[in-house]
Design a protein around this nucleic acid. Structure first.
Lengths: 348, 348
DNA sequence: ACATGTTATGCAAGCGCTTGCGTAACCTCG
DNA sequence: CGAGGTTACGCAAGCGCTTGCATAACATGT
């Protein structure tokens, strides 16, 4: 005997509904799942009874039988929730939406330090049908790990690994390239770049984009003008202050995030500089809620891309893959930014 | 035939390990779960083999067999993630910690509008072993709904319903009462209160605490001084501005959250008022990360209680309950605030 | 040497659902 | 009116694990 308290109490099972109607479990199951072999009349009768009796399918048993849980997992470092200024919750929000629409559940797995083991456990225990991982490094070991387990997964961002995998990414190279070119077009040459840490693939790509733009105009890259920093307002203030106190300060600053830009605006105000005239600022805008480049004073020129939409696509691709709606080949989507010109840039 | 692709491919099952060692599934299962009837030697042999072969228990099958999923669910409105200033992620962080420690998983269920159906589905499908709900209303229908399904659950906060349930709460009455009394002790009588919306039980309790303090000193409560607002910095600025422009402005303000207090500080600065001298401010501090009452200038006098700890307790109580470590009676914990005196309060 | 323990392990049922296949009952038609 | 085709449903196996009970092998006491 496995269980001393079988399906009783609150548990209305398929069996109970079947008995009530004088049908077999199979028929009830099929009727509820709209199997074509069940005539509409029966299907209706069953639906009624199920509803009346308060039948709810047991997700555990169903999961075992169909070999799926109808849940996907999201693994991320605990700090990403703790950070006040982050695009993480916007991604999460996009994912949640789709998960809800498709009738899936979302298993959140924050980890403190040992991500690999969390990932492996989740993947091999078949607790979820698929996984999403975020912020890949330039060479990210998680991709191999997941590929080895055979679980469907999709990466928010790309990584330079030699195995195929699915991803949703933005063209980070292009983002910084266009931002830099815009400033070059306006006659700036001392252009600073506030970028994230280059161990992350997206930051590395942005650095390359910046360099490409400078190279194409035969402008030297001054290492003092390229800073690696976290993407918060405070860091924006600090970086801007540092840049502005340089013997030969930049005339324009590219910000990797809108939070950073906000900080730069603050620092400029404190230094008595007017944005758009004394200092040009451009940024990449993830279109997070609660903060908009258009509301900056002066309005901030920025490349723009919805990170919530990225979250949606991540979930959609993953679920399609799980349900076999995609072929066997991984799919990758990279969206290119729109550049919205506003008032934060002036001629040098 | 239920499944055309039985346990194969990546799936190393109990059966495979058993065959490898010439043992039965039962023995391997018991060995892995440290059942006392298995001698240490065998247990060791099995552990080795399992590790070597990369055995990972199938969570779905285990869940069905033991009648538990070893996962708990957290249901909350999607906006709570979207809000920039919120204590939600701190609660989440406490919950995550415990869930990880106890080997459970966390199923996140954000909902857009129809919370009841999300809740019911989660509870009846036995997809999770227990649920946490947050921010109860004064009379919250979710409690009855969950109680009816029979699933273990615990509430972050209390509600005035006539069925027993488990909860973790803070003494909100006491928080506002003490804050008000402190100000009264300093000679203030025109004391404003920035509270949340009174449909939430915690806000109603705070309102009552404020009133009790005023009543006990025979001070009239001026309705113009009691505001209902969201708990953000912006709202703090707006409310303070409104209060200060009153014909007879308050000399002291009680803030329901530290974000609100931050806004009040800003508004006071703009109005040229010095906190602690021209205007006294006190607040309740959930001890969120990234913002501390001690770091305010001047340092903010506040009642203090860790909301992350509340998150931990919620998860601990829920899991203990699931595992039957608690009796059948619900447990409730309400913590009383510490009041930390700093420099934001002066004599009237 | 035999009854009685003790120890180490296996058998098989069961968790609640899905699903391949089988089969009555009914219909259609030459 | 019987062969062949539908239609509507049921049987039972199986998903991978846990666990109550049975049992074989061996040790112990008299």
């Amino acid at each position: 005997m496995a269980n001393d308290r079988p399906n009783q109490g609150q548990g209305i099972g398929l069996k109970a509904v079947a008995d009530e109607l004088g049908l077999s479990q199979s028929t009830v199951s099929r009727a509820l799942r709209n199997h074509p072999s069940i005539p509409a009349a029966t299907r209706e009768r069953v639906a009624q009874a199920a509803k009346r009796m308060g039948y709810a399918p047991n997700a555990r048993a169903r999961g075992l039988a169909i070999g799926r849980t109808e849940a996907i997992g999201l693994v991320f470092p605990l700090e990403r929730l703790r950070l006040v200024q982050t695009n993480f919750v916007d991604v999460l929000s996009g994912i949640s939406d789709v998960v809800t629409e498709r009738g899936y559940n979302l298993l959140l797995s924050p980890f403190r330090d040992d991500e690999a083991s969390v990932l492996r456990r989740l993947a091999t225990s078949r607790m979820v049908d698929g996984l999403i991982i975020t912020r890949p490094l330039v060479h990210d070991p998680r991709i191999r790990l997941l590929a080895d387990t055979g679980i469907p997964f999709v990466v928010h961002g790309r990584s330079d690994v030699d195995i195929p995998y699915s991803y949703v990414d933005v063209d980070n190279f292009e983002i910084f390239r266009r931002l830099a070119e815009l400033l070059l077009d306006y006659g700036h040459t001392r252009i600073a770049a506030l970028n994230s840490y280059r161990r992350f693939r997206y930051a590395a790509a942005r650095a390359a984009g910046y360099r490409a733009a400078m190279d194409s105009r035969r402008q030297p890259v001054d290492p003092d003008l390229v800073l690696e920093t976290a993407m918060t307002e405070e860091d924006g203030v600090a970086c801007a202050a540092r840049l502005l106190s340089l013997p030969e300060p930049p005339t324009a600053i590219i910000c990797g995030s809108i939070f950073l830009a906000k900080g730069v605006y603050r620092a400029a105000a404190e230094a008595g500089l007017q944005i758009g005239r004394d200092l040009s600022v451009v940024a990449h805008d993830d279109q997070l809620r609660g903060i908009s480049a258009a509301d900056f004073v002066p309005a901030l020129t920025a490349t723009q891309l919805s990170v919530e939409m990225a979250g949606r696509r991540l979930a959609e691709i993953l679920i399609d893959r799980i349900e076999g709606k995609l072929g066997d080949d991984p799919v990758g989507e990279v969206s290119r930014p729109d550049l919205i010109l506003r008032e934060s840039v002036g001629r040098r």
